[in-house]
Amino acid sequence: MSADEPSRIIHADNLDVLPTLPDGQFTLVYLDPPFNTGRAQERRSTHHVRLPDATDVAHTATSGAITGFQGKRYERIRGDLLRYDDRFEDYWGFLEPRLAEAWRVLADDGTLYLHLDYREAHYAKVLLDALFGRECFLNEIVWAYDYGARAKRRWPTKHDTILVYVKNPGGYWFDSSAVDREPYMAPGLVTPEKAELGKLPTDVWWHTIVSPTGREKTGYPTQKPEGILRRIVQASTREGDWVLDFFAGSGTTGAVAATLGRRFVLVDENPEAIAVMRARFSGVADVEFQVGAPAG
């Protein structure tokens, strides 16, 4: 994929599209999959994906066997996890082959951001240790926000978790200097110059949700704020790099990538998401819409 190719928005099942994408072409893969809330969801039957050989991460590509977390076989880890929750197998049967494809299409200096909530983040961490190799874990980002339930019998849940993994722990791209700074929580404790400049974000991000009356609002129910995606794209890509989001939803990843001069591929099978993205990208140049998976 070259810098002169147009960005693409594809209306299709992402598991049909992913095998048609070339190996190692995306510097950033951001995924915001449906959370495993216990509600029934339709899905196609899935298959295991053969990962490429790699000498710098803990993988083998022999008949679906993957050596990862503490040298254990991947099938053993998956099997152990399935026993925790009777809903877990259906959800991870859906997500597992897509994560394997994300590893394949990620560039050698690329980064995966997997956005989940408290229901599945701990399972995902162990499975990604197996798929990527435990040494490829970079961060657990906590996005804390200011809305939601007011529980009386437990602490109200007011955060999401974003797991960050790199393809090559010795050579990934990360530029903290490109990231928008944020205000100090106690500006009186630093010099006026530092207070004016702001500080670099940590792994805890305080950021409001998309305002119901703000300019960003598209009406899509799971829309994420541009500020969260801007920070990710700024840190983990360069201008001209390719970004992939195959649970695209309202298209926030692509909107931010376009603003920052990155190319993108967005995939979603929901007609409502595609309609939202058509409206959102109507004035953006060099964006093609496709129906169905490209020819492999």
Rank of each mutant, 00 (worst) to 15 (best):
K167D: 01
G71R: 03
T60Q: 14
D146M: 10
L114Q: 00
V164A: 09
D90Q: 10
F137D: 02
L81D: 08
Q70M: 10
P97N: 00
R87Y: 10
A40G: 09
R76V: 15
L106D: 07
V57I: 15
T67E: 11
D53C: 11
A61D: 15
K152T: 02
I66A: 03
V126Q: 01
S45R: 14
T60Y: 10
A121K: 06
H115V: 02
R50C: 09
R154K: 12
Y91H: 07
K72Y: 14
R104Y: 08
R134P: 07
R153T: 14
F88S: 10
K158P: 00
R44K: 14
T46M: 10
G64L: 04
T111W: 00
A61Q: 10
V105W: 04
R39S: 14
S63H: 11
Y84S: 06
T37L: 09
V126K: 01
W155A: 09
G71A: 04
D160T: 04
A65Q: 14
R104G: 05
L81A: 11
A121H: 08
A107E: 01
P156D: 06
W143K: 00
G71Q: 03
L51G: 01
L51Q: 02
A144L: 07
R134E: 15
L106S: 07
G79I: 12
F132Q: 02
Q41R: 12
E96A: 12
Y147T: 14
G148S: 08
Q70N: 13
D85V: 06
R73W: 12
A121W: 07
V49F: 03
E140M: 03
T161H: 10
E42D: 10
H115Q: 05
W143D: 02
L81M: 15
T157M: 13
P169K: 03
S45H: 12
